[in-house]
Write a protein that binds this DNA or RNA. Structure first.
Lengths: 237, 237
DNA sequence: TTTCGATTTTTGGTATACAATTTAATTCAA
DNA sequence: TTGAATTAAATTGTATACCAAAAATCGAAA
């Protein structure tokens, strides 16, 4: 609870993350309803969210800042399309930063934090069982963000938040379900380590978990679809 | 040269970093002409930069994203004032990330990169000798950003860029010149290690360099000034 | 001096206008 | 029919005017 407040205060309010465009598009991207490369026309977003261009542009700016969206002058915005090199980098960065947040989480986690993580993990399972694929993906990402939040390092939290977001795009582009699924019992073992207050173990688990995902990526495809923006965005609320 | 282009392409254009307000205010902050807490009224910035509120607001938004500026609803923007806890975090993050960029820089640096770093270091010295305090500060920060750029990790570059920016605010608040000055021969030893292609050494040097700065901070003051915005911003161009 | 209330200033947001550019459509030529 | 050129339409970037709501300021009364 307190965490949510903090998060909203420090992150949402200022930069315009309370922006409906930001929220909606971000969520749609996280849930893979809005594939990389999708064009994001201002007028269309105005219509969809019933808001003026001012707000749309602010939202797009925020999204651009978190690298979920790419803007090119005079040609507008579209959902970012990380290259294989970008993907490589993002995971290298995660492998550098997140073992630290896991370590700190193990040192700082309260009973409530653990409960939150467990609940989170449960919901993820539930979504997975219910074949709610997009939702499970988003939850899986949020798990990592939650750990960063528990670590108490707001600065690293910001970075992790961004990296996890971009990972959603990367997974959309370069992940193939056929391969081993992002084993969610990794998450559970992580929770155990954090709950037991074992920083070293949490750190190690996080690192190998990330490496697992990383090495399961396949950089040969190019996924390029273009469907209706409105349908995708309105399906999420 | 190529670096600069890349930088401008990837960073400036998109998010609105070509914005005169963004550029001017960022620079003024880096050079300590705009102390933490300074109020940034929209109308005033319009006048100063001869631009409409549209642009001013976009610039302030971008600055808020990079955490140089704080916006509170209905009360506008002001130069951010990192708390001691923030400062602590920023340097912990730098101590985590920058040793890595230094290491990678040592592995990837070209002859041109080294030349650039040397030139940079020279200019920093020159500014210092000329008592151009603000300028030397900015150059000192840019040195770290330059290393991150050389590392080739664009993602980490983005983080370092932000952390270095915030460090300018932190130094403005919590640094006391009486103490040992940010020894610029640290920078030179770093350049040596990078030029010699010694990743381990570069990594270690960077880490201890950052720890040096970090431990020299003094969190007892509160620096609170309020002078003319126009004077400060126009002094920089 | 302090407090309360009214006035003025700022901010957050919408709508509108318009030039510059991009994109799409249409025409014309090979 | 295809390709190139030209024209028309749509989109972005910026400025401006406008308004409501919140904040800051000021002034008068206690």
């Amino acid at each position: 609870m307190k965490h949510d407040m903090e998060f909203e205060d420090e992150r949402d309010r200022n930069v315009g993350r309370a922006n409906p465009v930001f929220i909606g598009v971000e969520r749609a991207i996280h849930e893979h309803r809005l594939p990389p490369g999708t064009r994001l026309a201002e007028a269309e977003l105005c219509e969809i969210y019933g808001v003026s261009r001012t707000i749309v542009r602010a939202g797009l700016q925020a999204l651009t800042h978190s690298q979920l969206v790419t803007m090119v002058p005079n040609r507008g915005a579209s959902v970012a399309k990380p290259t294989p090199a970008d993907a490589q980098e993002v995971f290298e960065a995660r492998e550098l930063i997140e073992p630290r947040t896991a370590r700190e989480a193990a040192r700082h986690a309260t009973r409530d934090d653990i409960a939150l993580l467990l609940q989170h993990s449960a919901e993820e399972h539930k979504a997975l069982d219910a074949r709610e694929y997009g939702r499970s993906l988003r939850l899986s990402g949020l798990f990592h963000v939650e750990i960063a939040r528990i670590s108490g390092q707001k600065t690293l939290l910001g970075f992790v938040d961004q990296l996890v977001s971009r990972s959603a795009l990367i997974i959309a582009l370069y992940w193939h379900r056929e391969r081993a699924r992002c084993d969610s019992h990794h998450h559970e073992r992580l929770i155990d380590a954090i709950a037991a207050g074992k920083p070293d173990e949490a750190e190690t688990l996080m690192r190998s978990h990330l490496i697992d995902i990383h090495t399961a990526l396949d950089f040969r495809e190019d996924g390029d679809t273009q469907q209706s923006l409105r349908d995708r965005l309105l399906g999420g609320e």
